[in-house]
Design a binder for these strands. Sequence first.
DNA 1: ACATTCATCACAGATTTGGTGTGATGTTTG
DNA 2: CAAACATCACACCAAATCTGTGATGAATGT
Lengths: 186, 186
Amino acid sequence: MHPLRKHIEELIALTDEEFDMVLSYFEPIQKRKHQYIVQEGDLVDKEYWILDGCLKSYLVDDDGKEHILQFGMENWWITDYESFIKHTPSKISIDCIEDSELLFITFENREKLTAQMHKMERFWAKKSKFGRIALQNRILSLLKNSAKERYDVLLEQYPQLFQRVPKKLIAAYLGVSRETLSRLQS
Amino acid sequence: MHPLRKHIEELIALTDEEFDMVLSYFEPIQKRKHQYIVQEGDLVDKEYWILDGCLKSYLVDDDGKEHILQFGMENWWITDYESFIKHTPSKISIDCIEDSELLFITFENREKLTAQMHKMERFWAKKSKFGRIALQNRILSLLKNSAKERYDVLLEQYPQLFQRVPKKLIAAYLGVSRETLSRLQS
DNA sequence: ACATTCATCACAGATTTGGTGTGATGTTTG
DNA sequence: CAAACATCACACCAAATCTGTGATGAATGT
């Protein structure tokens, strides 16, 4: 089964015809390590689903420091949702940590697809709810937990991440310096 | 003197006021290595002048191979002229080989500036003529010269390039494989 | 006032990536 | 068929990045 189908069917069931229809609205794209899919200032009109690879979405502050909003790996969705939904210039950048294979759907096609297929509207609605919950938990974790606790939670939830991405990126995600992260590990 | 002024004054003379006027139509922008300024499919409405850094404009073919149309370094102009002038989607991509500082002018502002300042219209007209000559010579060189000869010409014209950019990019510019280029060097 | 928790700076060593040359072999073309 | 190249495979080197750790200092809560 197509991995995207498997992914979607975790939330809603699809017939073969329905999935073919869904897939027809997506386009594949390959990007190599270091390549960007979104740069600060862009108007983002695509949402990406990661077939293979690893990306990061991040904001660069006035001191030039990166703050990572999200990592993206296989079966995850990634884009700048603010720009995608509000049609405003992006504040964030997204680039590839590894060579990546993506499927993207444009805003327009997503509108068409949801109009045409109520199931997919439900899919995205559900996904959006789960996404909201995850973001809330991240906020609470940043407020409530110490760096060490945040480190432990991340390690438990996504152990693969620690094998795949440099520690300084983990640090930029957890909101600590890379030196502190290094010391947390011991 | 501002490097852009120096550059323009190689073709036409400007008063202080005139140059201030010209400069007011440009905006500065910084990009880091690997960042793009033009992606395939974009509608390009900006022309860039390179204050510092190094870029490449290139086309990716169906096999994923890069063919380099132009390198850009200090005091050069770069954009996808086809998209810029015809307002069609770009076939090429442009990205930074090094961290770069650029000044850009939008198509609209360029129109305004040339309407307002005949001198600048003359400047761009001259530049365009020289550009055309360079392109013609490149075509002739690709038709007429062997790889070795093209290599020698490039080395003589732009020796700096060989210090700054990886040989595989030179190869993609000359239209040979990097192995062949390597063997030409001996 | 002091302990805790972190950032920042500096450095050194390990690891990875990218760049480069070169041999072997295959393909195209005049 | 010879010349001029591409392609694949490999090995080596240099440069960049990653990583841990000590020293120092600032902010914060108790």
